[in-house]
Design a protein around this nucleic acid. Structure first.
Lengths: 221, 221
DNA sequence: TGAATAGTGTCTTTCAGACAATATGCC
DNA sequence: GGCATATTGTCTGAAAGACACTATTCA
């Protein structure tokens, strides 16, 4: 009988669990905050819309899992992912114990037009407030990711990921208004982003607009 | 041959993983921010100090796992836990794939004196800046939890969990100074917590102090 | 010249930070 | 009275918020 016990890992008491990764991709499309969903073409829940994602493989971190699944399902790559909430209710998937780790990303939807996305699978952008019925706890996952996105908007530079390299201050303001859900004063907004040095002018202007063209800006650094 | 494929969950490609829960308990002890660690009395890493925690059981959420392990290892209960970072490096535990979900909590160390804690196991408070060598990625986990704690201190009421029901404003200020690592101006601090209505006076005063006794306050709501 | 959007400045209020003298209870 | 800590207010500068008119391009 050993003096030193072995660690109390008993596969009967602590069985392993399946690890799912769910990815919430946000973008601003048609002046609305939208979430990218995929339509399942396999059993169960065939035909339902669901978050992107998949199951973890043993030789990769979960961030890598998320990127791999995201690329294979949509062609989207080089995104910045952030961990969100872990879902672990034992009944969340009735088939077996599945722990879900969710990730959040924002992309510029211009870079990934629907035709291109459409090559890969049946994908669709859904307004954050007009989501279809979602399986499991995916609605909660999106909710938690949205809260995190709003935090990031306040305290970080994340907005640049939603826009093209060059953009007008009005476009930037719209991103802030759409995500925060509040109207902002144009003069105060422009003053602020310029004072904090978040953006710098390019001297270039918009083309092909039927009104006074706006100056284009870039994000700093 | 079915028209509708089955979901691509292949136990060969996506084997299940062990799920570990790690709990970072913070408290202010002797005017220092400290972390509660437990000394392992089993193989491997026998004798090393490590975070509290254990392996997930199938019929509980990971929050419940964390609470159960915390109680069985320390007697601490009724704590508020927050999810922190998920660690999933495939090599983090060389024995098998273990995904760790960490949780963070703050407690009032007065409520759990060392003698009481000592009944349960070899537990110890370690200064956040004087941690012993820790196995796996536990140092990183603590680091991430600390960053989250500082966030919460700024934008939430979490400080009340570190103090007794009634406390002096000097004690509250010390909590803020210790966690943020910055000296604060006494007058500005008191003005602020009173103006924002974070605390309310009780009309009671300290006893048994050899100087002018301070008024005791409570947190609001 | 009309339509559409770009671009711009001042005033007020609020919040953060610097700063030091008096008050009280205990011994 | 001496010691130790509690308690208190003003001034300044920075940032946030309210608010409306002129400028430019195109059709």
């Amino acid at each position: 009988m050993p003096i030193i016990e072995e660690e109390s890992f008993d596969p009967e008491i602590n069985p392993k669990a399946a690890i799912a990764v769910d990815v919430v991709i946000f973008s601003v499309v048609d002046e609305e905050l939208k979430v990218l969903l995929i339509q399942r073409d396999f059993w169960p829940f065939h035909g339902d819309w669901t978050l992107l994602g998949g199951y973890a493989s043993p030789k990769e971190t979960l961030e890598e899992t998320a990127k791999r699944e995201l690329f294979s399902q949509t062609g989207i790559e080089n995104v910045y992912l952030e961990q969100c909430h872990v879902m672990s209710d034992p009944g969340r998937d009735s088939r077996t114990r599945v722990v879900s780790i969710s990730f959040m990303a924002v992309i510029n939807s211009q870079d990934y037009q629907v035709p291109y996305l459409g090559e890969k699978a049946r994908l669709g952008w859904f307004g954050y407030k007009e989501l279809p019925p979602l399986m499991f706890d995916h609605a909660q996952i999106i909710q938690a990711a949205y809260i995190q996105l709003r935090q990031r908007l306040k305290y970080s530079n994340i907005a640049w990921r939603l826009l093209s390299k060059e953009f007008t201050l009005t476009e930037l303001q719209q991103v802030y208004e759409i995500i925060s859900g509040k109207k902002l004063d144009k003069r105060n907004f422009r003053k602020k982003v310029l004072v904090v040095g978040m953006v710098i002018p390019t001297k270039k202007r918009q083309h092909n607009v039927s009104h006074r063209p706006a100056e284009l800006f870039r994000f700093k650094k």
